[in-house]
Design a protein around this nucleic acid. Structure first.
Lengths: 144, 144
DNA sequence: CCGAATCCTGAGGGATACTG
DNA sequence: CAGTATCCCTCAGGATTCGG
């Protein structure tokens, strides 16, 4: 991905004059850079489905097996920076930090749900296609 | 990305009891690994909107400023492997190779369109959030 | 309990040159 | 024209450690 933390945007010039959806500023490209990042979409999904909308860091982590604290932390920062999640700190000791989706973040869940639906419905076909491709490759190896 | 060329799928086991969307085999994760890849979604979009559904390699390349032949080639291979695009070779000399979306690939354009729509509609808000975050950061630097 | 800082690797992806 | 091979650099992201 291109963005995430530390992307100074080295090119302050006008990139493409017109609505060139194909320059690095293409909104779709930029959004995909975000949600394509490993844990982002998962956080959005988990928070979108969380019943008390607010979830603590540790709880969030428990609901996402496999995520490291570093990446969860980084992902949440990124999302907060983008205005997709909100942070609330309880000034207790030790501090309790809660996260929830903002309305903007919640609205992102809709297109993401579409993607999820497509994935669950069609990934088997993709797997079949892959197996077929592998077989053809094997065949070409078997050829005399 | 996890997949692409050379992904032996080391785990032939049952995909987690049930809808464990959180193991590496999560369909959504795998799909995002694909469409999150830099040029994939662009190819799908371009091919979905192409009027003669079939487009030659060079033409495709012209419609996607910035893509290198290497990456376009790799992307098309990947998509073909996944059964999302079909390749047709005209046995002339020099050879002409045409690409088009399969029905599966075409169906993927729907959820992608949803993502595109969201992006164009909401990226400005994200940009605003980012600027706001930057300002707060600057403020914290200005503090005495 | 929450998160920042550092180290290290593996893979994505650009530029260029070569083959059929 | 289409595709492959090589070089190289950047960066996601995992493990670990330190701080408040």
């Amino acid at each position: 991905m291109t963005s995430s933390p530390a992307a100074p945007d080295p090119a302050p010039h006008a990139v493409g004059a017109r609505g060139d959806l194909f320059d690095p500023l293409c909104p779709t490209r930029r959004l995909l850079d975000r949600i394509g990042t490993k844990w982002t979409s998962m956080v959005v999904k988990v928070l979108a489905e969380a019943d008390p909308a607010e979830v603590r860091f540790a709880e969030l982590r428990r609901r996402m097996p496999g995520v490291s604290q570093k990446m969860l932390s980084a992902t949440l920062q990124s999302l907060a920076r983008d205005g997709l999640v909100a942070r609330r700190v309880e000034p207790t000791v030790p501090p309790r930090v809660h996260y929830r989706l903002t309305p903007l973040g919640l609205s992102l869940d809709a297109p993401l749900a579409a993607v999820r639906a497509w994935a669950e419905q069609h990934m088997p076909e993709i797997d079949r296609a892959n197996r077929a491709a592998d077989e053809s490759a094997a065949d070409r190896n078997d050829e005399q």
